[in-house]
Amino acid sequence: MYTQSWQRLLDQAGQRPEAMSLASVGPAGSGSADGELKHSAKPWSDAAGTVHSLQTDTTKAKDTLTTAHAGAEAGTAGLACMGALTSVLASWELRLTAVHRECASLEPALRETARAQGEVDAGVKSALAQYSAPSGEGR
């Protein structure tokens, strides 16, 4: 059923092949999803909302860090720890900025995916409707 390399990986992971399936498809023979792949825009929209929240939170965190470090040099002049503190602040500012930028680029892509899926679904439904026989008519 699986190549030896896949079977070995499955065995190591403790997975039985019959237990594996896509999250949106029920197991074969279960009747839960009739083996049809189903999708929804909701996960994409939810992910976009989460990315937006993360983007906002990283901005707040960066502002909080900057405010917390303001004036620290005045009270610690000459101490070796000030160099380390400044280095740590700079490192976190870089990380938070990178996360913020990544989120800014992901959010529109996730929202577009959700929108596009809705349009594709509507288009397919419309295209297939022309092949449906009205009730009571045979083909």
Rank of each mutant, 00 (worst) to 15 (best):
Y2W: 01
T3M: 03
T3G: 10
S5N: 07
Q7N: 05
Q7C: 04
Q7S: 12
R8V: 11
D11M: 04
R16A: 09
R16C: 00
P17Q: 10
P17M: 12
E18C: 08
A19Q: 14
A19N: 15
M20E: 12
M20Y: 02
M20P: 01
S21K: 04
L22Y: 08
A23D: 04
V25T: 11
G26M: 12
A28G: 06
A33I: 00
A33G: 07
D34H: 13
D34L: 10
G35H: 07
G35N: 03
K38L: 00
H39K: 00
S40F: 06
A41W: 00
K42I: 14
P43K: 09
W44Y: 15
S45D: 11
G49S: 07
H52K: 14
H52L: 12
S53K: 14
S53V: 02
L54G: 07
L54A: 12
L54N: 06
Q55D: 03
T56W: 03
T59Y: 02
A61I: 05
K62V: 03
K62G: 06
D63W: 03
L65P: 01
T66E: 08
T66H: 06
T66V: 11
T67C: 01
A70L: 10
E73F: 13
T76Y: 15
C81Q: 10
A90R: 09
S91A: 15
S91F: 05
S91V: 00
S91Y: 08
L94Q: 15
L94R: 15
R95L: 12
R95N: 15
C103W: 04
S105C: 03
L106D: 04
L106Q: 10
E107K: 09
E107M: 05
E107W: 00
A109C: 00
L110M: 13
R111G: 12
R111H: 11
E112S: 14
T113D: 12
T113L: 12
D121L: 03
A122M: 04
G123N: 10
V124K: 04
V124W: 03
Q130R: 11
Q130D: 08
S132V: 14
A133T: 06
G136W: 05
